[in-house]
Design a binder for these strands. Structure first.
Length: 544
RNA sequence: GCUCCGGUGGUGUAGUCCGGCCAAUCAUAUUGCCCUCUCACGGCAAUGACCUGGGUUCGAAUCCCAGCCGGAGCACCA
């Protein structure tokens, strides 16, 4: 408002300051640091998710950051599913598409989508080449035995097998002639390397369990991440790798392979783990999966789950998540992401569009109370209230909230004999039933809630700050509502006009918060939580 | 035990490479005030940080050393 005026004035007084102001505005809105050695048009980055389940919120960081860099450098975004462990991190066939859907929700799209499980022959070819280069050997030592030798800096007796034997045995691995644990292919690195983590690591191992994807179900000889990922990064032209600190030794391991092939290793950045406040649940696919199986959560999109599906269902925009994720920067230390930051971003995004409605909650510690509105001496009480659809956009008009017997949250009731303003309706005076003024009425039970005596609609009492404004609904004409929140389900009553909003819209329940309307007349789930079938509306709470 | 990495307000972040313009930026959070028929939005203000100790230097958040604290890897997981 005054902004433009100020600028005009500044322009006449000191144009050079204005230019400076613009320059400051232009830049670093806590944007990510520039990538090292990045040429516009030549940056290729990849997200390499393991599709062993839908994504939790921490997973949003990779597409958020890669997508942001892609836009900055006009680069390429490869999504490669690293699904090379059919057993301990067994892929979930639904997760492939779910993950692509999550990326789309965040506002990005992968230019290329690959599945490692489609590319076994490629890995085998490179392994054979590596054997020819003297860079790998088959080893039948049990894992513990090798570990002991390795920690002592001693080589495996298999290390100097002749290449012919190695080729034969590796061929047998591919043919599935060994069972799990009987034979591996190791990369020959430096058995005396000062970092024990880098010594002659495993490139291929046998897995008896078939891969869940039909196309890959026949394979038994599977590459380990460091081999597969290293080969693929080179083959797909990846220029910049971002990965977690848990993989900080990966580049060092893979460099041995790159050196054998005389390839140039991409730039690598590491970042720490993300923790979220506000959730009791671990940011871990397996933990969430277990909670769902136990019925503790109603699904991946349960509002209590720290998953992408959950915040999406709550009406939080992918863009809000992306902004929060990119503002985390690229530090290698662990970071705590405050959900309030996501909420603040989202509020910016949705506040203008979210129409306002009333929802009177009915909670154990703050039950809804029902009271009739009685006529004033001179004036009959109006039949309905007409609050604005959105206070900042008068052209959207007013809603009609029927009055008569109304519900309010008990904590919103004023002290006996005091007034309160029903928003969009008018001023009423609370008159508890019976002789409350004898001082005996302490806790008061809900049956004798009393009445609200209509006073008038003179807004001055509110302007003067004498009377609080509260939300309310009609007792008879409201929708039984289930509000699902991070802290658990809350029941309540929504004003009838909310049917105008329709499903899948984000509204603001005044003095409660933003929520996404999920379903009208929902069907019952058989879960302990979630809709029982009694409700007329289910909404998912986003944030205040 | 061996090997890496990191420590700026409640949270995130800028500044650290190339020491001074940093009694430290911005956002969020919290609190108060203003606006308002919402505890939303908007406006104003306040709160609050350079892990510790040495060293180098005229001068250190920034360079060096030690310590402390935290994280990660040493898997036939990713």
């Amino acid at each position: 408002m005054d902004e433009t005026k100020r600028r005009d004035r500044l322009e006449t007084l000191a144009p050079e300051l204005l230019a400076e102001l613009d320059a400051d505005d232009e830049g670093d809105d806590h944007v990510l640091p520039d990538l090292p050695n990045a040429e516009p048009g030549e940056v290729v980055m990849r997200a390499a998710p393991n599709p062993n389940g839908p994504w939790h919120m921490g997973h949003a960081r990779m597409p958020a950051v890669i997508g942001t860099y892609k836009e900055r450098y006009d680069g390429e975004f490869v999504c490669r599913f690293d699904d090379t462990d059919p057993e301990t991190k067994r892929p979930d066939l639904d997760a492939y598409d779910a993950i692509l859907g999550d990326i789309e929700y965040l506002g990005f799209e992968a230019d290329r989508v690959l599945k490692a499980s489609d590319r076994l022959e490629t890995y085998y070819e490179h392994a054979r080449e590596l054997i020819d280069l003297g860079g790998a050997y088959t080893c039948d030592l049990p894992a513990e035995e090798f570990s002991e030798l390795k920690n002592a800096g001693e080589p495996s007796p298999n290390r100097d097998k002749d290449p012919g034997t190695v080729h034969d045995e590796f061929g047998d691995m591919i043919a599935g002639e060994y069972d799990a644990g009987e034979m591996v292919l190791r990369v020959r690195t430096d058995i005396e390397h000062k970092n024990p983590a880098l010594r002659d690591w495993v490139a291929f191992r046998m897995i008896d369990t078939p891969h869940p994807r039909e196309e890959a179900a026949e394979y038994r000889c599977w590459p380990m991440l460091d081999f597969q990922s290293g080969i693929d990064d080179h083959l797909t032209g990846v220029t910049h790798i971002i990965r977690g600190i848990d993989l900080q030794d990966s580049a060092k391991r893979q460099r041995f392979v790159y050196d054998y092939f005389d390839w140039e290793y991409p730039e690598v950045l590491h970042w720490g783990h993300v923790q979220l406040d506000e959730y009791d649940i671990d940011l871990s696919t397996s933990t969430i999966k277990a909670l769902i199986e136990d019925g503790e959560l109603t699904g991946w999109d349960d509002p209590r789950a720290p998953t992408i599906a959950s915040v999406r269902r709550r009406g939080i925009r992918g863009e809000a998540l992306v902004e929060s994720m990119t503002s985390l920067g690229m530090s290698t230390s662990d970071v705590d992401l405050a959900m309030s930051s996501v909420y603040a971003n989202n509020r910016d995004l949705v506040d203008d569009e979210a129409d306002r409605y009333f929802l009177v909650r009915d909670r154990a510690d703050d039950p809804a109370v029902e009271l009739p509105i009685t006529d004033a001496d001179g004036a009959p009480a109006p039949k309905a209230g007409h609050p604005a659809v959105h206070p900042d956009f008068p052209d959207r008009g007013d809603r009609t909230v029927p009055a008569g017997r109304v519900l309010v949250e008990s904590s919103d009731l004023p002290p006996a004999g005091e007034r309160v303003w029903l928003k969009g309706y008018g001023c009423v005076r609370y008159e508890p039933e019976g002789d409350a003024d004898d001082g005996s009425d302490t806790t008061g039970d809900s049956t004798d809630a009393g009445t609200l005596a209509y006073v008038d609609a003179d807004i001055d009492v509110v302007r003067e700050g004498d009377v609080d404004v509260v939300h309310w609904v009609s007792a008879a004409e409201s929708l039984e509502t289930l509000l699902r929140t991070v802290a658990g389900d809350v029941r309540g009553h929504a004003e009838p006009a909310i049917v105008d909003a329709g499903t899948d819209t984000v509204v603001q329940f005044e003095r409660v918060g933003f929520a996404r309307l999920d379903a009208f007349d929902p069907t019952s789930t058989d879960e302990p939580d979630g809709p029982t079938g009694e409700e007329e509306l289910v909404a998912y709470y986003a944030h205040p």
